[in-house]
Design a protein around this nucleic acid. Sequence first.
DNA 1: CTAACTATGTTATTGTTGCTAACATATGTT
DNA 2: AACATATGTTAGCAACAATAACATAGTTAG
Lengths: 208, 208
Amino acid sequence: MAETKIKKKRAYHHGDLRGQLLSAAGNLLEEHGPDGFSMSDACRLAGVSTAAPYRHFANKQDLLLEVAKDGLQRLGAAMEANASQYERGTIQSISAIGRVYVDFAIREPHTFRLMFSTRSHSGRIEELREVGRASYSVLLREVARYLGEPDITETVTRAAFPLWTQVHGLSFLAIDGKLEVTSFPVDIDESILIATERLLPPATGTKA
Amino acid sequence: MAETKIKKKRAYHHGDLRGQLLSAAGNLLEEHGPDGFSMSDACRLAGVSTAAPYRHFANKQDLLLEVAKDGLQRLGAAMEANASQYERGTIQSISAIGRVYVDFAIREPHTFRLMFSTRSHSGRIEELREVGRASYSVLLREVARYLGEPDITETVTRAAFPLWTQVHGLSFLAIDGKLEVTSFPVDIDESILIATERLLPPATGTKA
DNA sequence: CTAACTATGTTATTGTTGCTAACATATGTT
DNA sequence: AACATATGTTAGCAACAATAACATAGTTAG
């Protein structure tokens, strides 16, 4: 009886519904795409009724926005962690960032798409952009080191942008199945390395 | 009376409902995105009831697939037309193709996204891929001319792929509002020209 | 010419979805 | 103990994609 009472108490107030909804939405997003799962599906996974999520998220868009923000943060952390395994400010550390980027896209394509889509996040895009800028600055700092620039100067942003463009394009081509169109096996790592070498200006910093 | 009779006849059997639905869907797609318009909206524009479209398209996905196919065809035609205004097989004609590509993405972002998305076209992706290959071959042929290759050899596909990657990435960054993040004004035409020069191997054909 | 067939339209209906309203219960504060 | 707040429930709506049953126009065969 006492146990039942406690169970009922726990059953009513969920404890960490917000967190579990985010987790459920993240999994469902990757498995079925943003339109392939319903709020009810997420509710069933979290074990609550269909109206419960709206105490924590304004709507489905809002829930997915948080999933996207989390994705951008994880991407930034992964890029930093991977770059730090090479000598900083080198072609190697920079292309390592690119590899992490494309790997993320391939591993979590739906999240990746959502992270960079402007639509679907009508109201609160600015939050997403802010997290995105933070993650992008990982690349910017690395390129600044490569160029021997003391700060994120325009020289740095101009050098970094084509690299972003390249790995971004490679990511989308990969997740949309366009790497099999090309009649030769695309080696992603090699593509990134070559593109990095060709698109970056020669290093003027201390490192060659 | 006779006129009324004719009008009624014309009102019932629409004449070119399929075409008008495609046109309506294309317009609605660009204005509101794929999830921002309903079948009913398209029906109202075409002046028919909500069940009429299902005589011509299996479902909404199917309707949008046809819109995407049309977009790929128009892109291919535009690339060919624009490349032909320059000396064939040159950096100029090749980067012209890239400009058309990015311009299309900017002008019709939702169609562009749909053209390259794998999801949303579950059943009949192969049709889309076929049209896509035909459009891609415009670039392949131009690069073959540049390299002096008689055919679409592996040398050609290897040289062309990084170019596609670059303009594809630039397109997505542009339509997702990422060109304003960079603290310097991105000149799209210049970006494409520079990237083409750097990513292409030196010309071995007759043209320099 | 007309009868049957096919193509293409209509109205009515269904099941699902995102979301809200009204209500219930737990937690925290005074 | 009483009240306020946060967080859950059930019931239900309007919009949606899609289907079923029916209606009408064009087309073809006898």
